[in-house]
Design a binder for these strands. Structure first.
Length: 578
RNA sequence: CGGAGCGUAGCUCAGCUUGGUAGAGCGCCAGCUUUGGGAGCUGGAUGCCGCAGGUUCGAAUCCUGUCGCUCCGACCA
């Protein structure tokens, strides 16, 4: 490709609309342009990178036995009603209407469509297992699109759905996908870490997210140094010792005692003079609305609630903190001095750190009054004990005891064992070897292709611009012609190298613009081509051209050997070792 | 949806407090010079000052509304 024959609008200045680095570079390097919030046009270079990523995904999916299909982006609401997700998924839908006012849904995901297909086409265990996938644009009415391609209203996703005859076989399908994902991200040059993920209301331990550690990541991952444990913070637990290992001697516990705490509304305030109650000797009482019913949640004062864990425990994702008004209706008091003593109406979910607890302090459900000498077993009727707390940095790893670390990460992929929820609701059943009808056991597997693209930039860049791995670079080589007069030795040499590289099947762009050298060098570094070959009169006098790997050292080599050198370099760098 | 900020030339931004001829740099066009790290000089084109309404003799500037964008919190690849 000749630079002047394509469209690469680079930007010298940082567009005001972009906050994070990868987003800025996407715009500055001329890969994308915004139409409006969360909607982007892929320009030639951006499109090329996306196609390269998609091809890696395709190759690895095929290798793992995936079957590529393409499903409609427009979906009828009926299948969502059948699967039981029509109401719960309401918030993410973009909807459309046809001329007769019939409602349509722009697909945010495709479990319903693929399961409908399988329901009508697959009848026998002999037709299983099957793993269908597609690479397609998804539509989600994001609450807040942001960071360019990172969270967009419309994005390209690879989604795969496996159907198996049994749980055991489904587990195999899951493991195959897991391995395919490891391969895909490695080939994209991404350091993507598989972490245990929250499965929400589905339960089970069969979900992993592939996470790229990055400051701008929207998730937090918890991991140990030796690399044997990694989990999304929503899922993570620690081996932190419970503060009250033994059951309390209830008989010898001092009686409850109310005390005045005027103006005290927070855990922190109660820690200070004159009260001096350590946070980890306080009970934090939260009121949540689950499916619009109030429940109480009790934690150590020093802990934070993990909503994902709560969702798993109560079996619903429809939960939110109660409003002050709802809190008052539930406990007869406003937040600031809430407690669960003598509360019998709402269900009370307590974190296991409080088990056997005594000598604790909590709110009295009276403004400005707290209660000390609380003994869990004696004073509070707990409905259920569960791990509900957010893990904190430095707590012991549940597997090795090492101090846990926490860092932000970008989720680029997710593998998930679904079970039979969709196959049952949509009738994807088959006859097993005994002639008995069974629902297929499903798994689903997503990769955010456009997000992966941006994650690569976020991970690999420097002050000059992007640093593409060879595997996904828009062009592997950029020839910077420093004189574009067709009769000049520089241009003649550049043209000849250009042809030779094309003949070798190497993707090369020839910068034939009538621009000054500085502009060309800056642009090639901004875009991040893995290799730049500089051809100019100055070095040709010494009978050399300049080869510069992006981020590496410049080498002067003879024009006759440059093609071999570059070919070898590419072969050596084609498969990233990440 | 709640909180914060911003909408002025293709881009980055000044001007707004204190109302009175629409600005700079970069980019673009022409010419000359320059020619190995985002060149110099000269000349030129480019604006519904987001939109609507109001106040005023007069509004980019003040007021109200509205739309859009960005950031912070709850959703997700």
């Amino acid at each position: 490709m000749r630079w002047t024959q394509t469209f690469i609008p680079t930007l010298k200045e940082t567009p005001a609309e972009a906050e994070i680095l990868s987003h800025r570079l996407l715009l500055r390097a001329g890969l994308i342009r915004k139409l409006t919030g969360g909607l982007y046009t892929f320009l030639p270079l951006g499109l090329k990178v996306m196609q390269k990523i998609a091809n890696i995904v395709r190759e690895e999916m095929n290798r793992a036995g995936g079957i590529e299909v393409l499903m409609p982006a427009l979906q009828p609401p009926e299948i969502w009603q059948q699967s039981g997700r029509y109401e719960t998924a309401q918030d993410v839908f973009f909807k459309a209407q046809d001329r007769s006012k019939r409602e349509w849904i722009l697909g945010p995901t495709h479990e319903e469509v693929i399961t409908t297909l399988v329901a009508s086409e697959i009848n026998s265990y002999r037709q299983l297992p099957r793993n269908f996938y597609q690479i397609q644009t998804k539509f989600r009415d994001e609450i807040r699109p942001r960071f360019g391609l990172m969270r967009a209203r419309e994005f390209v996703m690879k989604d795969a759905y496996s159907f198996d005859a049994s749980d055991e076989l489904a587990q195999l399908s899951y493991e195959k996908m897991y391995q395919a994902y490891v391969n895909i991200f490695r080939r994209c040059g991404l350091k993507a870490l598989p972490v245990e993920a929250d499965t929400g209301v589905m339960g089970g331990k069969h979900s992993h997210e592939f996470m790229v550690p990055a400051e701008v990541g929207e998730d937090d991952i918890v991991y140990n140094e030796s690399g044997t444990y990694a989990a999304n913070i929503e899922k993570a637990s620690s081996a932190l010792a419970a503060p009250f290992p033994e059951p309390a001697d209830v008989a010898s516990q001092p009686a409850l005692e109310k005390f005045e705490t005027p103006g005290v509304k927070t855990i922190e305030a109660l820690e200070k003079d004159p009260y001096q109650v350590p946070a980890n000797r306080q009970i934090k009482t939260l009121v949540y609305m689950v499916d619009e019913k109030a429940i109480l949640i009790l934690l150590l004062g020093s802990d934070q609630l993990n909503e994902a864990k709560l969702a798993g425990v109560v079996g619903s994702t429809n939960l939110r903190p109660a409003t002050p008004k709802e809190v008052f209706e539930t406990l007869g008091a406003y937040p600031g001095s809430l407690g669960a003593i003598n509360v019998s109406g709402p269900a009370i979910y307590a974190d296991t750190m409080l088990r056997n607890g005594y000598g604790l302090t909590t709110g009295a459900n009276e403004k400005g009054v707290h209660v000390r000498n609380v003994c869990m077993e004696r004073d509070i009727t707990v409905t259920a004990w569960n791990d509900l707390r957010m893990v904190k940095e430095g707590e012991p790893c549940p597997e090795t005891g090492e101090a846990l670390k926490i860092r932000a990460a970008i989720e680029v992929g997710h593998v998930f064992k679904l079970g039979t929820k969709y196959s049952e609701n949509l009738g994807a059943t088959f006859l097993d070897t005994h002639g008995k009808q069974q629902p297929a056991v499903m798994g689903c597997y997503g990769i955010g292709v456009t997000r992966t693209l941006q994650a690569i930039i976020e991970q690999d860049h420097d002050d000059s611009g992007i640093i593409w791995p060879v595997s996904v670079a828009p062009f592997t080589v950029c020839i910077t012609a420093l004189d574009i007069d067709p009769e000049s030795p520089a241009m003649k040499t550049a043209e000849s190298i250009y042809q030779s590289l094309i003949d070798k099947g190497i993707e090369v762009i020839l910068d034939d613009r009538d621009e000054r050298p500085g502009v060309k060098f800056k642009d090639s570094e901004l875009i991040g081509f893995p290799i730049r070959i500089g051809v100019g009169a100055r070095s040709l006098k010494e009978n050399v051209v300049e080869v510069k790997p992006r981020g590496g050292d410049l080498q002067k080599v003879s024009p006759d050997t440059v093609v071999d050198l570059v070919t070898t370099w590419i072969a050596d760098n084609e498969s990233p070792s990440a």
